[in-house]
C-alpha cells in the first residue's frame, strides 16, 4: 500500500536492490513460449543457451542438477516476446496463444 512521506527513504532512494521482482510482468503476455526437450541442446548436453542469453526478462531458467539438465520458463515475468523461439537454432520453442 502507498506509504506516508515519513515511512519511506528520502528523495526516492530505493534501498532494496532488484525489488522489481515483486512486480509480475507475466500478465502482459499474449503468446506463451512452449519448450520441448527432445531437440533442445541444453537438455541434450548443456550447451547453446541462446534463449537464456537473449531473454530480456530473465524468464528462461536453465537448470543443472546432478549432471542432468532441466529447462523452465518463469511465466511470472515472461512477456511473450518470442525472442527465445525466434533464436532457437533447433526449433525447440513454439509460441502458443495464451
Amino acid at each position: 500500500m502507498s506509504k506516508r512521506f515519513d515511512e519511506i527513504p528520502m528523495a526516492g532512494i530505493i534501498i532494496e536492490p532488484g525489488n522489481a521482482m515483486e512486480y509480475k510482468t507475466g500478465g502482459w503476455r499474449a503468446m506463451r513460449p512452449v519448450h520441448t526437450d527432445e531437440t533442445c541442446l541444453w537438455i541434450k548436453n548443456g550447451t547453446c543457451g541462446l534463449c537464456w542469453i537473449y531473454c530480456p526478462d530473465n524468464a528462461v531458467r536453465l537448470i543443472e542438477e546432478n549432471g542432468k539438465y532441466r529447462y523452465e520458463y518463469d511465466y511470472d515475468y515472461c512477456k511473450g516476446c518470442g525472442i527465445c523461439a525466434n533464436q532457437c537454432p533447433t526449433g525447440s520453442i513454439k509460441m502458443e496463444s495464451e
Partner: peptide
C-alpha cells in the same frame, strides 16, 4: 544478473539484453 525481472521495458526490447 545486474538487472532483475519485473522491469517494465516493452516486450521484445533489446535494451535489457544489452544490460544483461
Amino acid at each position: 544478473p545486474i538487472l532483475s525481472s519485473g522491469h517494465r521495458m516493452c516486450a521484445g526490447c533489446a535494451a535489457p539484453t544489452v544490460v544483461k
